[in-house]
Design a protein around this nucleic acid. Structure first.
Lengths: 127, 127
DNA sequence: TATAATAACGATAATGATTACTGTTACTGA
DNA sequence: TCAGTAACAGTAATCATTATCGTTATTATA
């Protein structure tokens, strides 16, 4: 990969994502970063998100619909609410069996995994 | 939900999916079922796949790209090969910690999960 | 510090998977 | 047998994402 040059747009995108705890879609992020850089182009957003995913600075979540993004790259799990569609962090410690599966005998090679739980979030559940 | 009427198209789609062990996309399935029913419409395929997912007869896998479908609804895990993009079944027993997570204390409610491993499949790995 | 190479940009067109619409066909219960 | 309507084929529309293109800005080097 070529070296990444400094760019105001990429910094703004990454900072915005780091300062929020929802897991925004590209469009949600776009609308928000636009408050800071009104000239931001949607193509620029997508290009930078994909670069940031590529080099492991952020991760992307998806399961059926649009992609959602998360600047927390520490191993953690998510709940996707079937009712409101939002993604939430789950306060669960890393599941050991999953790490084991990655190092287990297998003629190929496992390098990682994504785990998404489904259900109803607290807010929707209490209504 | 309304009762499902019998339909030749839905039967053909489901049978086709049951008789294969890859995890086809909608388009792959479409091309295959068309050999049997040349007049099959793509809209019909999508409508039926979504009905079959809805009532739990099949499941869908996705992680970034298109949806893939699987007629095996028993709990099992998948490997998505980063090299060729295919999905494979992994011969791993259900992971207990995941079932536990589903019944654990949580102010909302967890009803299920999807777990997809990433890596390199045997075929790609040996090349 | 000036400058040449090119990464990154904004704007916009293109792609491609999925969904919606419409007039017709064919199950199914009465 | 037939009325009601789920399902169909064909096709248009949607919408997230990617590609293209001419311009701008970063950066290494003269």
């Amino acid at each position: 990969m070529e070296q990444l040059r400094k760019s105001k747009q990429r910094d703004a995108i990454l900072n915005n994502l780091k300062n929020r705890y929802d897991h925004p879609t590209a469009m949600e992020l776009f609308l928000s970063v636009r408050n800071e850089i009104p000239s931001l182009s949607l193509g620029t957003l997508y290009r930078n998100l994909s670069q940031l995913c590529e080099n492991g600075t952020i991760i992307s979540l998806s399961s059926g619909g649009e992609e959602h993004f998360d600047a927390n790259v520490n191993q953690h799990y998510h709940l996707k609410c079937n009712s409101c569609g939002r993604y939430y962090d789950l306060p669960s410690p890393p599941i050991e069996a999953l790490a084991k599966a990655c190092s287990a005998d297998f003629m190929g090679k496992i390098t990682g995994y994504t785990l998404i739980f489904y259900g109803t979030c607290e807010e929707c559940f209490s209504q």
